[in-house]
Simulated assay, not measured.
Amino acid sequence: MGLDFSVVPDYLDVIFLGALWTIAITVCAGLLSFFGGIFFAVIALYGNAAVRLPFRFFEWLFMGTPLLLQLFLIYFGLVQIGIDLPAFVAGAIGLGLHFAVYNSELIQTAIVSVDKGQMEAARTLGLSRGQALRKVVIPQAVRDVIPPIGNNMIALLKDSALVSVIGVGELTLSSQLAIGRTYRPFEFYAVAAAFYYLINVVMEAVLRRLERKTALSR
Rank of each mutant, 00 (worst) to 15 (best):
F55M: 15
F55S: 08
R56Q: 15
R56W: 13
R56Y: 13
F57P: 01
F58Q: 03
F58T: 02
W60H: 11
L61R: 05
L61F: 13
F62V: 07
M63Y: 14
M63D: 12
M63P: 00
T65C: 09
P66F: 11
P66E: 13
L67D: 06
L67P: 03
L68W: 06
L69Q: 02
L69C: 06
Q70W: 01
L71S: 08
F72Y: 15
I74D: 08
Y75R: 00
L78E: 12
L78C: 09
Q80C: 10
I81M: 12
I81Y: 07
I81D: 07
G82W: 01
G82F: 01
I83P: 13
D84P: 01
D84F: 08
D84N: 15
L85G: 00
L85R: 01
A87T: 06
F88Y: 03
F88N: 02
A90G: 04
A90W: 07
A90N: 07
A90F: 09
G94I: 06
G94E: 05
L95C: 01
L95P: 01
L95R: 00
G96M: 12
L97H: 02
L97R: 02
H98W: 07
H98Q: 05
F99Q: 06
Y102I: 02
Y102S: 03
Y102C: 00
S104G: 14
S104Y: 03
S104H: 10
E105C: 00
L106H: 12
I107S: 03
Q108L: 04
A110L: 00
A110M: 01
I111A: 11
V112G: 00
V112H: 02
S113G: 04
V114S: 09
V114N: 04
D115I: 02
D115L: 05
D115H: 11
K116P: 10
K116Y: 11
G117F: 07
Q118M: 11
M119K: 05
M119W: 02
M119H: 05
M119Q: 02
M119C: 05
E120A: 14
E120W: 05
A121P: 01
A121M: 11
A122E: 07
R123M: 13
T124C: 13
T124D: 14
L125W: 03
L125P: 03
L125C: 14
G126M: 02
G126I: 09
G126R: 06
L127F: 12
L127M: 13
S128N: 03
R129K: 15
G130S: 14
Q131Y: 07
Q131E: 15
A132S: 15
L133W: 02
L133H: 12
L133K: 08
R134K: 12
R134E: 05
R134A: 14
R134W: 13
R134S: 10
R134L: 14
K135H: 15
V136W: 04
V136I: 11
V136Y: 05
V137K: 00
I138R: 03
P139F: 06
Q140E: 11
Q140F: 03
